[in-house]
């Protein structure tokens, strides 16, 4: 594996990767007041990581987010979602929105929905990146019956 693409691509990636991640986080956090949400934001977060993977190659990216790290974020996000939903039992039942609902349209509103969005964002971002990592292992023409 060579170490990624040309200098131009690497420089541009260095410039935009942070903004992509920031935008992903914004989409996740504003999911309850504007279009977007956990899945869309998580997909953007994954896209940022995938861009880094394409530009800098596998090794450099795996130092940022390894297979195990992606798995942990993935399962952790899903677990957080289930646990937050189950916390509703404190207020009467599964998925009961027990936090303050706030003023509709404000960032600090909608009770536990932003928390659920954050959990989904973590899960989807890590999950999609994990899928891409798993598929990127593939090299055309390599199959195990090959004696070489």
């Amino acid at each position: 594996m060579n170490s990624g693409m040309s200098l131009i691509v690497k420089t541009v990636t260095r410039l935009v990767a942070g903004f992509i991640t920031l935008f992903g986080i914004y989409i996740v956090l504003y999911g309850h007041v504007s279009p977007g949400g956990g899945f869309a934001g998580g997909a953007i977060l994954a896209a940022g990581l995938i861009l880094v993977l394409l530009a800098f190659g596998r090794e450099a990216t795996l130092r940022m987010m390894s297979h195990d790290g992606a798995l942990a974020w993935d399962c952790g996000g899903a677990l957080a979602f289930v646990l937050i939903a189950a916390l509703g039992y404190l207020a009467g039942g599964f998925f009961v929105n027990f936090l303050s609902h706030g003023e509709p349209g404000q960032l600090n509103s909608a009770g536990m929905i932003p928390l659920l969005n954050a959990a989904i964002g973590a899960k989807v971002g890590a999950g999609l990146f994990g899928v891409f990592l798993a598929l990127a292992v593939f090299r055309p023409g390599r199959h195990r019956e090959d004696p070489s």
């Binding site: 195990d68 798995l71 942990a72 399962c75 952790g76 899903a78 677990l79 289930v82 646990l83 189950a86």
Partner: peptide, 15 residues
């Protein structure tokens, strides 16, 4: 809830 939560916990416990 139980199998779902346990299902996501097992990879964390097993790594």
């Amino acid at each position: 809830i139980l199998p779902l939560a346990a299902g996501f916990l097992t990879p964390l416990a097993g790594r």
